[in-house]
Simulated assay, not measured.
Amino acid sequence: MTAEPLAFHRRVAQEKRAAIIEAATRLFLERGYDGTSLARVAETADVSKSTLFKQFPTKSALFEAIVTTYWDLGEGMTAQPAAGDLRAGLGAIGRQYAELLDRPGMASLFRIVIAELPRFPELGRVQFRLGKMPYFESVQRYLEAESAAGTASVDDSETAANQFLGMISNYVLWPRMLLVDWNPGTVAIQGAVDQAVVTMLARYSAATSN
């Protein structure tokens, strides 16, 4: 098979995968995780059951794919900022995190997990392990690198990462769990990130500590 047909088949497979993930997310939210069958997902996504089972043999595998898709930073966005400029690095990380949380469907993903957690605690573990933790750990590593470079004074990188990401998520994401009309614009979100950066600099900048 030549390169052109291979590229075509790969593109079609990616489109079907995206359709399956979109359909599953919507159905999980509408019907619950337990109330959604893979057969119904295939029907809603307009793919054959064999196509769905080839990519996602179980419902748990499908949910894991949903989590990793929504938390995927995309090519070119996964690099950790270089240490040396705490303000710029925190600003880049904060904007990236706000963009992640503001993605269409991210709030829905959290709602699915919260609604089904009593019956399916593994959904929470998957969201934590595949979604939250990899990003959280990357922020920890960045803060530790800044501390090692002498631009930050961070004794507890876990607490510092929690504080920074928490300030952003408390504005961008969590109000959406209760307020259906919560939809801050780009300027407001950037303002929240900027304020989080200012707070972190006041607490952890080596220049402030000295």
Rank of each mutant, 00 (worst) to 15 (best):
I93E: 04
P118E: 07
Q127M: 15
I114V: 14
L100H: 00
R125C: 02
S108H: 07
R125Y: 05
P104E: 09
R111N: 04
L86N: 03
R87N: 10
E99D: 15
F128Q: 11
R111L: 12
E99Q: 12
V126R: 08
Y97S: 03
V126H: 02
W71G: 02
L100W: 00
S108K: 10
A79V: 14
Q127K: 06
L123K: 01
L130H: 06
E99I: 02
L117W: 03
L101T: 04
G76R: 12
Q127V: 06
L100V: 14
W71I: 04
L109V: 08
G94V: 11
D72S: 15
R87C: 04
R87A: 12
S108E: 14
D85H: 06
G84E: 13
P81E: 08
R119A: 14
D85F: 06
R87L: 03
A83W: 02
E75V: 15
T78M: 14
F128S: 09
L123V: 07
V126Q: 09
V113W: 00
R87W: 03
L130S: 01
A88C: 05
E122P: 03
A115V: 07
G94R: 07
Q127N: 10
R119D: 13
R87D: 15
Q96T: 14
S108P: 00
D102I: 01
P121I: 06
R103A: 12
R103T: 08
E122I: 14
L90Q: 04
V113N: 00
A92L: 14
L73C: 06
R87S: 08
D85E: 13
L123S: 01
R125F: 07
G89T: 07
R125L: 13
E116V: 14
P104M: 11
I114R: 08
G84F: 06
G74F: 13
Q80A: 13
T78D: 13
D85W: 05
L100E: 01
E122S: 10
D85I: 13
E122D: 11
A98N: 05
M106L: 08
A82F: 04
Q80D: 08
L109C: 03
A92R: 11
Q96C: 09
P118L: 12
R119I: 05
G94M: 11
E75R: 15
R125I: 13
I114Y: 05
P121L: 02
R111T: 08
S108L: 15
G124M: 07
R129T: 11
I114M: 11
Q80C: 12
Y97M: 07
F120W: 02
A107R: 05
K132F: 09
L86M: 06
P81L: 12
W71S: 03
R111A: 15
R95Q: 11
G74S: 11
G89L: 07
E99S: 14
R125T: 12
M77A: 15
L109H: 00
G84M: 13
P81I: 09
G84S: 12
A107H: 01
D72Q: 14
I114C: 01
L101V: 10
D72T: 13
L90A: 04
M106H: 05
A79H: 12
E116G: 07
P81R: 08
Q80N: 10
P81G: 08
G89Y: 03
L73D: 04
F110G: 04
L73V: 08
P81S: 11
V113L: 03
D72N: 15
